[in-house]
Structures are given as structure tokens and as C-alpha cells.
């Protein structure tokens, strides 16, 4: 039982990271009905950017964070403007956009590969492995930080989407982009904003994830992509609350698989969930059956 609870604690920290990433998937899908396969690469790019500034350049952590967020925000913005927007302008089918996100993903991964190589690096962290002992449980400070930060961001984000003018515009565009445009909302700006927010969140979760595992290599993007995607589909794609729920379920499954079966199998659990969802509940747990617009 203690062991089970310890695994659950780990899963909550892991789930927070997945949730931060999954929310970005879900937001982009909500607005463009497009699965952004490059999202995992942005996650990886964020972690590398932090590594470069904090370790190679030697800047303090807060500056490294700041520069990374700005850089990745620009990457998210440019990614949409340079590759996806031209496709929307010329009314290309959605499928073309999907392939485009795959292409961007490959380009980003290989750019990092060319400049940084494929070796695994040790990632700087906070609190240097210190942890809180609560009876039989050990909770590392970094896990606590990750969970608190994620909860704060999720709350802020849901308030933003619910209340802020731009957040309301985002929801409006997600529901009906043509009517939004006619209400005077610049849809492309809203899409840009969505990519910027999603990318910065992915970068943040990339950094936090590497801080928690203390290592970094170029494959982390594809691993998180599968998990965050599974979480998003599981929760009901396009649904922010669903993405968070899905993230925690995926993290639990992964943590228990690693703890009770074998840690070699941990990544398998996400695939199994993905297949089960697609077979039995393709609209996700919180998703409604989507009526295709004609």
C-alpha cells in the first residue's frame, strides 16, 4: 500500500508535466482542428534552450527561463505563420496541415541533432535531490515545485480562457472562426496567440521534466508527444479539462506499470491506453460526439 501511494505521488508529478504539454495540444486542436505533431519537438527544444543558456552560457536560472520562453514563443509564432498559415490561406485540406506539422517536427529534431548531437546530457535542477519525508513517503522538492507550478498555471489558464478578452476570443474562434472574424476578431492573431501559449507551456514542461529526470537528449520530444497526445485523446481532444484528466490517467498507468510490472514497460502503457481509447471511446472521456460541419 505504501508502495502504491509512493507510485501515486510520483504519478501526480509526472501527470503535471504531461498536463502542461497536453493542454497545448488541446488548444491548437480546439482552434484549428489540427493535431500538432511538432508539439513534442517544441518541448524538447525548450529543454535544450534552457540547457544552453543555463549550462553552456552560464546564465542564472531565471534569465535562462526568461530567454527560453521568449525564444520558444517566437518559434511557436513563426512555426504557424511560416508553415501553417500559408496552407490555411490557400484552403488546403486539413490533412496537408497534419503532414506539415510532422515535417516541422522532423526539422526541429534534426536541427537540434546537428548542433547539439545525440548524447545524453546531465540537466541542472533545483534543490539538488533534496526531499520531504512524510512518514514512509519521499516527495522530492522538485516534484512539489512541479505540481504547484502546474496547478497555478492551469488555474491561471482556465481563468484566462474563461474571463480575459483574448481568452474569450480564443473560445469564440474555436467555436466558429468565421463568425468570430465577422465580429471583428483577427482570427490569425488569435491562432498565433494559441501557438505562443502552447509552445511556452511545452517549453516549461520540457524544462521541468528534465529537471525531474536530471537528463536531456533529443528523444524526449517523441516520448512526451505520444504521452501528451494519448492524454489529450483520452480526455477528449479540444477539451482543456479533459486534457488534464487524461494526463493524470496516463501518468498513473505509467507509474503503476513501471512499479508493478517492469520499468521497461512504462512507455508501453501510453500506447495501450491510446489503442483502447481509439477502439472504445474515440471521442474521449469528456468529449462529445462531434458532428462534422457540412
Amino acid at each position: 500500500m505504501t508502495y502504491f501511494l509512493q507510485l501515486t505521488i510520483n504519478a501526480i508529478a509526472l501527470g503535471s508535466i504531461y498536463a502542461l504539454t497536453a493542454v497545448g495540444y488541446s488548444m491548437v486542436y480546439g482552434i484549428l482542428e489540427l493535431v500538432n505533431f511538432a508539439h513534442g519537438s517544441v518541448f524538447m527544444l525548450g529543454a535544450f534552450s534552457y540547457y544552453i543558456f543555463a549550462v553552456l552560457v552560464g546564465l542564472p536560472w531565471y534569465l535562462s527561463f526568461l530567454i527560453t520562453f521568449i525564444l520558444i514563443g517566437i518559434v511557436g509564432f513563426a512555426y504557424d505563420r511560416l508553415t501553417l498559415l500559408p496552407l490555411r490561406r490557400t484552403n488546403q485540406p486539413k490533412f496537408t496541415g497534419l503532414i506539415c506539422t510532422l515535417g516541422v517536427s522532423i526539422v526541429l529534431q534534426n536541427l537540434v541533432f546537428v548542433f547539439m548531437g545525440s548524447n545524453t546530457r546531465q540537466f541542472p535542477t533545483f534543490f539538488e535531490g533534496r526531499y520531504l519525508s512524510l512518514g514512509p513517503f519521499n516527495i522530492s522538492f522538485i516534484q512539489i515545485l512541479i505540481v504547484c507550478l502546474s496547478v497555478a498555471i492551469m488555474v491561471a489558464l482556465s481563468l484566462f480562457v474563461k474571463k480575459a478578452k483574448l481568452g474569450v476570443a480564443m473560445r469564440a474562434v474555436a467555436q466558429n472562426s468565421m463568425a468570430s472574424e465577422w465580429m471583428g476578431i483577427n482570427v490569425n492573431s488569435v491562432v498565433s496567440l494559441t501557438f505562443i501559449i502552447g509552445s511556452v507551456l511545452a517549453a516549461l514542461s520540457g524544462i521541468l521534466s528534465c529537471m525531474s529526470f536530471r537528463s536531456l537528449d533529443i528523444t524526449i520530444g517523441s516520448t512526451i508527444a505520444i504521452k501528451a497526445f494519448t492524454a489529450t485523446v483520452l480526455g477528449g481532444i479540444g477539451n482543456l479539462g479533459g486534457a488534464v484528466l487524461g494526463a493524470f490517467i496516463v501518468a498513473m498507468a505509467e507509474s503503476y506499470t513501471a512499479g508493478f510490472i517492469s520499468s521497461d514497460m512504462r512507455d508501453l502503457s501510453a500506447f495501450v491506453i491510446l489503442m483502447l481509447v481509439l477502439l472504445f471511446r474515440p471521442n474521449g472521456l469528456l468529449g462529445k460526439a462531434v458532428q462534422k460541419k457540412v
Partner: peptide
């Protein structure tokens, strides 16, 4: 082409956004 899952007030507020 309404914003279906929003309230009447929210729909009208979106009209005022600009």
C-alpha cells in the same frame, strides 16, 4: 453561426470585442 456553448451575454460581448 452563434457561439453555441456560450451564454447570450457572452455572445453579445464578443460582438463588442473590437
Amino acid at each position: 453561426r452563434l457561439f453555441k456553448s456560450m451564454s447570450v451575454l457572452e455572445n453579445v460581448l464578443i460582438g463588442r470585442q473590437h
